[in-house]
Design a protein around this nucleic acid. Sequence first.
DNA 1: ACATAATACATAGTTATGCAATGTATCTAG
DNA 2: CTAGATACATTGCATAACTATGTATTATGT
Lengths: 111, 111
Amino acid sequence: MNSEFVQKWKSQVKKGTLAYIVLNVLNGNEYYGYELIEEIKKNTRIEIAEGTLYPLLNRLKKEFLVDSKWVEQESGIPRKYYTLTKEGKSTLKGMQEYWQHLEKSIKRISK
Amino acid sequence: MNSEFVQKWKSQVKKGTLAYIVLNVLNGNEYYGYELIEEIKKNTRIEIAEGTLYPLLNRLKKEFLVDSKWVEQESGIPRKYYTLTKEGKSTLKGMQEYWQHLEKSIKRISK
DNA sequence: ACATAATACATAGTTATGCAATGTATCTAG
DNA sequence: CTAGATACATTGCATAACTATGTATTATGT
């Protein structure tokens, strides 16, 4: 069944979808990094390593798609909350169009 | 709208989906490389560079997911036809399961 | 007759990104 | 008081799409 290939393939699929998933989740709510990992695992069963998410969030911020603010806790480590910017929202719309088109195309060819 | 980011994102999405698309197209019919590019462009509007497809087909062959044979033409350059192996078919099944799960997950989080 | 485009294969180098590994620091539970 | 969960972050490696480039044949236009 070549599960090693499938394993690598899943990792490749993630490369494109993670940014899309994160932007979608941030559309409406604000989350901090660690919370995002939990939220995505809960809703999609997709596990994101911390070493994947934090660089990704930094890239999204550098592109002005998300913004972040530190929030002090009464106890514990301060959390960095991320929100979607206006640019992030319009970019997400373009991505959603492409994704829907891709989804339909794949449905058409996989019989 | 940050179309440069979207451009890069689309390229990343391709990284995971191209192998999946190619295996799906080869499931049922046999195609030669150049024909595959045309077929996929026609059905999905996704353009695959030759420098992308040929290394991909070689990887799939090395993993025993596809097999190839040279077919001489009455005129012109011989064509290398690719077919899905048994292993390729069962691997594709596993990929289809994951893809459908991913599709549902993304639908759930994108409101 | 001759240049250009289309067909058909292939490889080398660049770039982007997921992930493992590693590090720091705090809080909670056994 | 130690282990695990929470919370941030960086470094280095592997993978794969893409651009550029190369070879060779056939068809088309002028």
